[in-house]
Each structure stands twice: as C-alpha cells, then as structure tokens.
Nucleic acid binder design. Sequence first.
DNA 1: TGAGTATATTATAATATTGTAATATGAAAA
DNA 2: TTTTCATATTACAATATTATAATATACTCA
Lengths: 103, 103
Amino acid sequence: MKKQDRGLALKMGQKSEEVSAILKALAHPQRLLILCHLAQGEKTVGELEQLCSVSQSVTSQFLAKMKTQGLVSSEKRGLHVIYSIEDERVAKLMSSLYDIFCK
Amino acid sequence: MKKQDRGLALKMGQKSEEVSAILKALAHPQRLLILCHLAQGEKTVGELEQLCSVSQSVTSQFLAKMKTQGLVSSEKRGLHVIYSIEDERVAKLMSSLYDIFCK
DNA sequence: TGAGTATATTATAATATTGTAATATGAAAA
DNA sequence: TTTTCATATTACAATATTATAATATACTCA
C-alpha cells in the first residue's frame, strides 16, 4: 500500500460515519431526484412533488429529514416554502454523480 | 431553468434507480470503509475484516451482496478469496468522495 | 372572518436492513 | 484422513425505512 493511500484510508475511516449518513440521504431514487433538482436551483415543495412524482406527504417528510441533517435549508416566501441545498459538499457530490453516471 | 440543466435532471431521472442502488451500497459506515480499502487495491476477506473492524460473517455478507450487485468481484487464490472493485464507476465515486469529504 | 392553498405532522402497516450466532464448505497442512 | 484455516451460508431477532392516509397548521385573499 502506498503512503498516500494509507492516508486516504485513514481519513475515510474518521469520516465514514458522516459520509455514509450523507450517502444514505441520497440513496433513494426519489430523494436523489429531489436533490438533483435542488442542485439546479431552489424549488418549492410543490414543484419538487411534481418534478419528482412524489406525494405531498413523502416530499415533505424527505425534505424535513434532510433539513434536520443540514443538507438542505428552507425559507418561507408567501404561501410557499422554498428549499435549497445547504451543504456545499452535497452540491459537489451531485455534480460528481452526474459526471460519473450520466455522461 | 437553463437548457443544460433540464438535460441533467432528465438524465438523472432515468438513472436514479440505478444510481441510488449503488449509493445505498456505500451508505453504511463499514461498507464505505470496505470499498475505500478496495479502492486502493485488492484485499482478502480477512484483511478487510481487520482493516474495517467488521465481523467475519458481516464482512462476507456485505461482500456477497456487493458482488451480486456487480460492484466488486472475487477470485480464489489458495486459501484466500481476494476481492476487488469491479465497477469502474464505483472506483471513480470513491475518488470523488475522498476529494469532497477528506481534503 | 372564513375559505382555500401550501406545507407539516402523526400514526401505522408493510417491508428492508442490520447484527449475531451457529453451522457449513472447501482447500491445504499435518 | 483428520485437522485447521478462510470464507460462506443460514436463521433469526432487533431495528430502521418506506408509503399511505388522515389530520393539523399557517398563510393569503375574498
């Protein structure tokens, strides 16, 4: 094993709880889609429901959990609640996923 | 929404089942660690057990499932079974995760 | 104020994942 | 050929996730 590789494994070991928790949030077809749309800009709950074909309740539950995790943030604007990606690492990850799986 | 962004969302929509299934495989602290070590080169089951502090049974179960998914492959060599990453996209993803979360 | 709209919350059943313990297999060494 | 070592498999209890349906909140507008 090369020196730099040992470093990689070590750092991953320290972070594996945090990183796997984030991956778990993305590890659902419709949550992944929700984040994919949010990666392109803020959206209301209703927009996400339609774009991703997820029920009102599930959309709201998913967003609430991801907000608790600090992955997204929300802002009330009139009747609507607008969500955006809060964790920059999630934004980067979505971009990598696009590069790896969709090009 | 920009044209290129609609493209991104569309492609992600088509792929979201497959991609989220792969993410699910990584979305566990010790499986992530296993893949992190495999990303640095082939390893025996016993090596992975020790490197990741996972029981024999669980290590084997995790590897079996990831093999069924096509993410890793195995080869018997003498007494040992050696695993490696089979899906190049997983290797790329591990590398991206390192860049995003460990730098 | 009252109706309608957008979102959140709760309870719950169905299903999936996780970890443990015990046992099985199969190759190599003694 | 029996033993030992490395890995795989199985059964199962504990826990977590998912989706649905029903209800609640809270804001806006007539």
